[in-house]
Design a protein around this nucleic acid. Structure first.
Lengths: 223, 223
DNA sequence: GCTTTTCCTTGACAGTCGTCAAGTTTTTCT
DNA sequence: AGAAAAACTTGACGACTGTCAAGGAAAAGC
């Protein structure tokens, strides 16, 4: 019987058990592959319904398996959702890195960042509302907090890479702390998301107009 | 039989029915009083447990009545929660008005605003996390959106009154739009709330240090 | 004081939830 | 091919949910 935990057993380096080790690893990889497959299905269900209304049976219906299988691969619901959140992070936290790497002028970086900012707002709106849902859930449920704070930190790093590179290209320095930069941009994003989902496209457009200036306020040009 | 709806019947101005009207109004007022009483109990339950885990029986236990009475005063759960949200607004949306009214210098206004900002963060933390919970819920549940957008607008007006008055006292002008001011301050508040509830007091203190400068960036002094 | 209306409690309903045990199907190994 | 292990399905459990109807308790009206 293969136990339903995600901890891989390592350290079996004895020569006589190599073959067994190889087999076990293949099993574990297969196990993990299905785990992430189910976690992705969970992610889509959560994005569609929100945390409060997502049930295990609904998740199973969004996969090709039955609801019982979830307890074969996950200890309980929290374990499943935690894994789903980790999948979210993989998708989301390197979003702007290519823009940073390829842009050669400050204006280009700023414009492409703004473009991608509002692109993903429309494209992945349900995923983003899920993130905010889970982050809020961590205000009530302590067991989510560690993961949420970690992802929040990665998001902060992500926008810091953008803005500090922008300052570099502009030939100046960043005027505010990484935390302030993040909460500002994240606040703009949240507001834009709410307006987007409420169908208020003109409000979203207005935020798009104002975003470049907000970025501009964060850096001071060298004289 | 007195129907459980919140719409008051008006327009009965006929002289012969004055007495009946007076009685009816007293009944209605009593009805509304109990409605708000139950809405307040709902608010506290929501603040404690969050939207996802709040049940009608739990709400009733936080009041002095049994669970059945909720359907006597409210059409359904949504009606009840909507009324609770309105109660939240009454409490929260005029929080800084006195600071604005009594401050005579820019520094005083700024310092007292910051003080109250972090006061209510610690004092009413559960209420605030509820607000963010419900705002997020509106990203999934369309029926919350109108109320949420209205309250969000009032919150924006609230901080606008603070910052525009601050600019006035400083003898300058506000450099960014009301929306940008709100999303920034709200973003800072959200971050501080998360850190506060996570027990990271030093992070909260750091945000407190940085808040005055963030306000400073929003206004430009006249030369 | 008696009747009528209002207010509130109690208990039940149909449904959903997370969880798990038993059993079936599929894969793997010898 | 046969045996063993893994992967998956099914159905059930107790608990909990929102809702509502029946009836008792309290207040109002006469």
């Amino acid at each position: 019987m293969f136990v339903a935990v995600s901890v891989r057993i390592r350290g079996v380096t004895d020569v006589a058990s190599r073959k067994q080790d190889r087999i076990t690893r293949r099993q574990v990889d297969k196990f993990d592959a299905r785990r992430t497959e189910l976690a992705v299905a969970t992610l889509h269900t959560l994005a569609e319904l929100g945390y409060a209304r997502t049930s295990l049976r609904e998740i199973a219906q969004n996969s090709e398996f039955s609801h019982g299988v979830l307890h074969y691969y996950f200890a309980d619901k929290r374990d499943l959702i935690t894994e789903a959140v980790r999948q979210y992070e993989v998708v989301c936290v390197t979003r702007y890195d290519e823009v940073v790497a390829t842009s050669t002028t400050a204006d280009q970086l700023r414009d492409e960042f703004v473009a991608m900012f509002f692109d993903t707002l429309g494209q992945d709106a349900t995923l983003h509302r899920l993130w905010y849902d889970l982050r809020n859930q961590s205000l009530f449920d302590e067991s989510f907090r560690a993961d949420v704070l970690e992802i929040d930190g990665h998001r902060e790093d992500m926008v810091w890479r953008v803005v500090s590179r922008y300052a570099e290209l502009v030939g100046g320095t960043v005027a505010v702390s990484p935390t302030m930069i993040y909460v500002t941009l994240d606040g703009i994003f949240q507001r834009a998301l709410l307006n987007h989902l409420a169908g208020k496209a003109d409000n979203v457009a207005q935020l798009r107009v104002e975003l470049p200036a907000a970025i501009g306020l964060m850096v001071t040009k060298a004289e």
